[in-house]
Design a protein around this nucleic acid. Structure first.
Lengths: 219, 219
DNA sequence: GACGTTGTCAACACTCTGTCGAGAATTCTC
DNA sequence: GAGAATTCTCGACAGAGTGTTGACAACGTC
């Protein structure tokens, strides 16, 4: 796979480099990691597997990445960028139900699309401080946005006071993460993929508004 | 396959304790593991650490446990037994708010009391199928009870229809697990220990009843 | 006082990680 | 286009862990 031969757009001299370029090697490692993560956990993948998959020796692997966790981190960067993109909680008042649904669906879809990476990111958190920190930052971002949205809905009178907005936001976001992880990993008590979205949206709306049919702003 | 799989190399009771009995050694290993888990993760604890802590050599450790995961499994047995004991969802109709609160508080307290074990149990899930399965069974138990309670409240007319009871139960229980884990591990977005209970109880009540002040049965 | 059971450990075989240093390939500089 | 600088590559090493083997000691039992 990633048979290397073509299209580096590298040499204008028409001479094919006898050696594959560094960028290509790096990409090959990333691709190998993603492929292998679809089959087994990072814990069951050795640096040697990654190196061989990319057509290099183990020591050479270390020229590109400090560890296999570093590879996952690089893979996570992409995932994170994509997951963020679907959130637009600023518009919450306009169509609460729709905005909540689309926001949750966006993360849901992104995770589904990159299942191996999403799963590994969560699983490796326990072992790798760097992964833990990156994930932490991402969750923090989601929580901040959710908190602001809840507060604004309360200010507008559409949502009742109650649990501190930030606590509510944390619990709901952590719930999503855990529910996604459960269904993605196929573990024991998990919600069916098709029902997942409905359940999460309903809980968010009930927890924030006290009803699954909150009033939209009549501008 | 549900009998004590935890102590791999153990055999029949009835043996009279000798000088330094096997049971004592086993307890010493367990105690060492619990102590060490208060300082670092299972991943950072070697079998040698466990053996030395219990005053035996590494090979001897394997006489008592098949691996360090097996030690955690034994520790989990206690935790699980205790966590289960505080739940009495059968009485939900009598005092919804109080029962939910006491149920969540019970698990919360148990986890706090055995923080190292609770934390390790969740963290090691990713690596150890046996731990994953045990945890799975426990969650399944919580979910079954919650589902039955929700359905009974709906039948009684105290809780509205909506999301399938089981899906609701799964999401809420997974939320609790994740929120507890976050605050226990001191990770980034987490609810303050003192506010945790209020937040979770409120979300449970809102998700099930649509209000934080559900009606109790007026027998 | 032999006998099986329980308990013990030195030594071994193995897997995996991460590093070092010597050198090959490619690009830069004049 | 020769040499220097940079980028890349890997054989060989040093360690940390894991789990197993086989010999052997202590003890209760008959």
């Amino acid at each position: 796979m990633e048979a290397s031969t073509t299209t580096a757009a590298r040499s204008a001299r028409g001479r094919r480099p006898a050696r594959v370029s560094g960028d290509e090697r790096e990409r090959a490692i990333l691709a190998t990691a993603e492929r292998l993560l679809g089959e087994r956990s990072l814990h069951e993948i050795s640096v040697d597997d990654l190196a061989r998959g990319a057509g290099i020796s183990r020591p050479t692997f270390y020229f590109y990445f400090a560890s296999k966790e570093a590879v996952l981190l690089a893979l996570m960067d992409r995932l994170v960028a994509e997951a963020r993109s679907g959130i637009e909680l600023g518009m919450l008042a306009r169509d609460p139900r729709g905005v909540v649904r689309r926001g949750i669906a966006s993360v849901h879809d992104t995770f589904r699309e990159h299942r191996p990476v999403a799963l590994a990111s969560i699983d490796v958190r326990a072992k790798s401080p760097a992964v833990r920190e990156l994930w932490s930052r991402v969750m923090e971002g989601f929580v901040d946005e959710s908190t602001a949205a809840i507060e604004s809905e309360r200010a507008r009178g559409a949502a009742p006071q109650g649990v501190p907005a930030r606590d509510l936001a944390i619990a709901l976001n952590l719930m999503n993460e855990r529910v996604f992880h459960a269904s993605l990993s196929g573990e024991a008590p998990a919600i069916d993929e098709d029902a997942e979205l409905d359940a999460l949206v309903a809980i968010w709306l009930l927890a924030i508004y006290g009803t699954t049919d909150p009033p939209s702003a009549v501008d």
